[in-house]
Write a protein that binds this DNA or RNA. Sequence first.
DNA 1: AAACCTATTGAAAGTCATTTTCGCTATTTA
DNA 2: TAAATAGCGAAAATGACTTTCAATAGGTTT
Lengths: 171, 171
Amino acid sequence: MANLTAFFNCDDRTMEQDPALPSLNQEPELLKTVLNKEGFRFTSQRQKILDLFQSAALGHHLNAEEIHQQLLDQGEKISFSTIYRALHVMVRLGLLQELELAEGRKYYELNTPFMDQHHHLVCVHCGDVKEFEDAKMTQVGSSESASRGFSLLNCQFTVYGICPSCQSLLS
Amino acid sequence: MANLTAFFNCDDRTMEQDPALPSLNQEPELLKTVLNKEGFRFTSQRQKILDLFQSAALGHHLNAEEIHQQLLDQGEKISFSTIYRALHVMVRLGLLQELELAEGRKYYELNTPFMDQHHHLVCVHCGDVKEFEDAKMTQVGSSESASRGFSLLNCQFTVYGICPSCQSLLS
DNA sequence: AAACCTATTGAAAGTCATTTTCGCTATTTA
DNA sequence: TAAATAGCGAAAATGACTTTCAATAGGTTT
């Protein structure tokens, strides 16, 4: 069986990801509402983590280490366990999306409706990540999952290559 | 910087992935040839691991644990370090492809030319993985990498959802 | 075919991102 | 506002890989 922790490991509550994604950017109180609706509690740590994503450029991805560091930089002490737990809860609630950028660690970014979903072009040498959008991806993802009776949660297209500057370094 | 071990961590030899993929399925001696050409040695362990992939259905993916278990089942003792090292070498040589199926571990499968590349539909609940093909993926991957000057290594489209049987379990 | 060089192996120790445990604190709910 | 318990931080644990190192074996040379 799969071990997709961010989807299923928020303690033991059984709950499905909410298909109607709230637009948190506007409502300062919305995080509390969304959490409480599902029996989670609002905490300042969770708000601060979400704030990081909201103040970054849309589509910017962060990992646990970077979140920890950015909070330290702004004078907030927080433990890694809290960060990981908050990330899982927010993925579960559909606020964040978990990304596999093939670097041995997980990245997260604000979840966006399917139509705006973007994908990633990764340089395997320097780790640089470029984002791009292409409606064909979402089409293929939804038609493929529909044809097999899957209910679609999300889809990721990741292209691995070597960026121009690394190409010149390597040659 | 990225930590894509299978691309870059085969000891310290600097070598690029061979763009011309040999079709190993026919030639029993080819593994030795391919290894020796790049200064690697042919060993029975490497052959046995490759055999597992070749005897499985094309596109079947295995992780280190499964390889270890299957070899044990057929009476072969092998260490995990040997398995991981062999996998890295074979990815480096273009014989295998590394997959990120978002389950906290890496999967491998026989590498196929781009035109036959297939993608994955994963049930996040039971972990079941279906394969599918769609030429649009490769098109988008190569045009996107070309437009940014990246040299394309490979691309993976992974769709996450809930399979029909898990849907009925969960409802 | 024996000698030689060094890549590869297995066992065990080490890494590192993430998870869990547990006593204490803070948010909800009654 | 008190009782119930979700969430917190610190530290220990986990698990997938990696590395180390002495012994072995593939490939090459003589």
